[in-house]
Nucleic acid binder design. Structure first.
Length: 419
RNA sequence: GGAGAGAUGGCCGAGUGGUCGAAGGCGCUUGAUUCGAAAUCAAGUAUACCGGUAACGGUAUCGAGGGUUCGAAUCCCUCUCUCUCCGCCA
């Protein structure tokens, strides 16, 4: 959520951001509604003030005087009620608009229409010779992945992992949790089913309803999370935090409807309805420098982690048109996926400033003792099974076996090879 | 799923129609006392928004929403959540 004052003070910046992000927001209709809202509210408050004044006087008066006043006050009361209902209506409209107002991208963010205009800023690792088998073939041959049966049981975009495939999947997740624990992050096992408020607070709703599974028939207002960011950020909803920063490692399954993606990335484990993710979440002070520091920390954690798995990757800075509504600064990390003959997105590192914290009503006392909204950030540490694509494909051997990266071996009982 | 009890400030807890943003206590802050501390005493101690340079004034907020009333923390309705008992259950 955007501070309405900030829109009043700097409408042009919001016009630009709205265009850049193709947000469903109109600065000028907001401003006009906002001014209606303000004047109506003032009218309401002054009428209410005179009513309160009389109410306080009432018990000191005689019966006759009271009766006389009551008749007068009846009219005022009716008037106030009418204004109040109008005010409520306009307030709701204003709130709905405000929820769709975009965060303004930092000056570092390149201008661009979509992901094709993201800019590569870093490249790491040598791309190995591709031996020709993709993860689906490898998975089938070694009994690691069974997509056909996944579809039989759960419909399209479903899968089974089995045997060493399932073990590798758990190993990489377990390793990720240990890794973040070692860097001072608090491991969180959060709710997978959340309320509308949590979805709204993290800015998935309104707007992202199509992408979320809803349990609506028997449990209205309950949704499956698409990332533990939703639960973990909402952990401090409506709270005043007395200790910052907070570093969390959220671990959860992620459920995504992937509506509108039919025919896109149909092959293998790239785009699926259910996966697991270890997510980094930071809540920190309301300060651009501090946010930037944490953005780099989160990005570095992810880079260090992939490097320890020895997966070639590149980092791109995400352009204006490919950013989410609330994000002001964002990098993606893409790992090399031989079967796609390209880098594929595996990580997404976002800085929100106070966009989510305002929606979540998550505050802290700053040095002057004043309450301020926190800043929030998040980044993937690892998402699996998508990460199995580069993991299997880049590590395949000529004899059809797969080398397990050194860092994962302890989490596979010391096993070095999948065969 | 059935039956009952409850939700008040940072915390505990009083408050069944008016002068209640809310007693009292705890906690916290400041001052007095003390060599210092404890104890004691005194004062202060919610948030948001609007107006004002400020002092200050106004409005809202007692789980959420609606209703009754000139006036609601207090009465009525709906919902959410918590607790206890019963049933079911990994």
């Amino acid at each position: 959520m955007i501070d309405p004052n900030s829109i009043r003070e700097n409408p042009e910046a919001y016009r630009t951001a709205t265009k850049q992000k193709r947000a469903n927001f109109d600065v000028d209709s907001f401003l006009s509604l906002d001014s209606d809202y303000k004047s109506l509210k003032q009218e309401f408050e002054s009428k209410k003030a005179s009513q309160n004044k009389v109410s306080k006087l009432m018990p000191t008066l005689s019966k006759e005087e009271q009766a006389k006043l009551k008749d007068e006050m009846k009219a005022l009361s009716a008037e106030i009620k009418e204004i109040e209902s109008k005010l409520k209506e306009i307030e709701a409209q204003r709130e709905a608009m405000l929820l769709r107002a975009p965060g303004i991208p930092l000056k570092e963010v390149p201008e661009g229409k979509d992901d094709s205009e993201n800019k590569e800023v870093e490249k790491w690792g040598d791309i190995p010779e591709y031996l020709g088998k993709d993860h689906v073939e490898l998975g089938l041959a070694l009994g690691l992945i069974d997509i056909e049966r996944g579809v039989k049981v759960g419909g399209s975009k479903n899968y089974f992992l089995k045997g060493d495939g399932a073990r590798l999947h758990h190993a990489v997740l377990q390793y990720a949790l240990s890794f973040l624990y070692g860097r001072g992050y608090t491991v969180m096992e959060p709710p997978h089913i959340v309320s509308y408020d949590a979805m709204k607070g993290t800015s998935y709703f309104p707007g992202g309803e199509e992408q979320a599974y809803s349990l609506d028939s028997r449990d209205p207002d309950k949704y499956l999370i698409g990332t533990s960011e939703v639960s973990v950020c909402s952990y401090h909803m409506n709270e005043i935090l007395d200790e910052l920063p907070k570093r969390y490692a959220g671990y959860s399954p992620c459920y995504r409807r992937e509506a509108g993606t039919y025919g896109k990335d149909t092959h293998g484990l790239y785009r699926i309805h259910q996966f697991y993710k270890v997510e980094q979440v930071v809540v920190c002070e309301n300060d651009p420098d501090i946010s930037m520091r944490f953005h780099n920390e989160l990005l570095n954690n992810a880079k260090d982690f992939i490097q320890s798995l020895n997966l070639p990757y590149r980092v791109v800075i995400v352009c204006t048109g490919d950013m989410g509504l609330g994000q002001v600064y964002k990098h993606d990390i893409e790992c090399w996926m031989p079967s796609r003959n390209s880098y594929g997105e595996t990580h997404s590192c976002s800085t929100f400033y106070d966009f989510q914290a305002r929606r979540l009503n998550m505050r802290y006392k700053n040095k002057e003792g004043k309450l301020e909204f926190c800043h929030t950030l998040n980044n993937t540490l690892i998402a699996s099974p998508r990460i199995l694509i580069p993991l299997l494909e880049n590590n395949q051997n000529k004899d059809g076996t797969i080398a397990i990266p050194k860092a994962l071996q302890p989490f596979m009982g010391g096993q070095e090879v999948i065969k």
